[in-house]
């Protein structure tokens, strides 16, 4: 893609870009993928920073997004639609793998008297953590720490609101709860974050 062309696609609004993608514009689709890779990765990262397969999940989300872009009925709700893909995939994976860390063998296979197949002694490989984002300030570190400490249901509302900028109605639909629940969870999550960074607010 030439620079001028690239700039043209990058300056376009998200709904317009989606409309072009739906008309089989290959460059528009490439731009849409590139424009969303960071936000998708960071959403998944903040939902569970300990997952070793974050980049694979990001790839899967972007692939599903590109493959079914024509199914978006209203391009103005693209962000909501994309986050449905993210959360569906994330929770499917969570259910499937139940957050099991990859394992490495520390011993030769040991024989099992009752079985002809060999069993292996394995321990979780905590050395295989995903690449950490380098954060500049101490405050950013504090926020990251505070978000990670939040319970699952608070974490998701903070990510969907503050990172993705979704409305309460959209968050309620994605998390399959009521708007009232979203309101109270968000208020409590913000309260917890505020407590964590209180010294910096003065």
């Amino acid at each position: 893609m030439e620079k001028k062309q690239k700039d043209f696609y990058y300056s376009m609004s998200l709904p317009d870009l989606v409309r072009l993608c739906q008309q089989d514009d290959k460059f528009a689709l490439e731009t849409l993928i590139k424009r969303n890779e960071k936000i998708v990765y960071n959403t998944l990262y903040h939902l569970d920073p300990n997952r070793p397969d974050l980049s694979d999940l990001t790839q899967e989300v972007l692939f599903r997004m590109a493959r079914s872009i024509k199914k978006v009925r209203n391009p103005d709700t693209f962000k909501y639609w994309l986050n449905q893909i993210i959360t569906n995939l994330f929770y499917d994976e969570l259910r499937r793998k139940t957050r099991k860390l990859p394992t490495v063998s520390i011993d030769e296979p040991i024989s099992d008297q009752d079985s002809t197949s060999a069993a292996t002694r394995e321990i979780p490989d905590i050395g295989q953590v995903p690449e950490e984002t380098i954060l500049g300030s101490e405050l950013d570190e504090k926020i990251k720490e505070a978000i990670q400490k939040l319970p699952e249901q608070f974490k998701i509302v903070i990510v969907l609101r503050e990172l993705q900028g979704l409305s309460y109605d959209e968050i309620a639909k994605i998390t399959k709860t009521s708007i009232g629940t979203v309101k109270s969870r968000l208020a409590r999550a913000r309260g917890k974050l505020q407590d964590h960074i209180r010294p910096y607010l003065q």
């Binding site: 490439e30 993928i33 960071k38 990765y41 960071n42 984002t133 405050l139 950013d140």
Partner: peptide, 26 residues
Amino acid sequence: LKLTSKIVQKYFKNLNFPESDVSDRV
């Protein structure tokens, strides 16, 4: 609370993306 929200939004905005070839792979 408003300041907290702004700080959190800024934190998310300034995050880096460590993977560079995800788009190409997609």
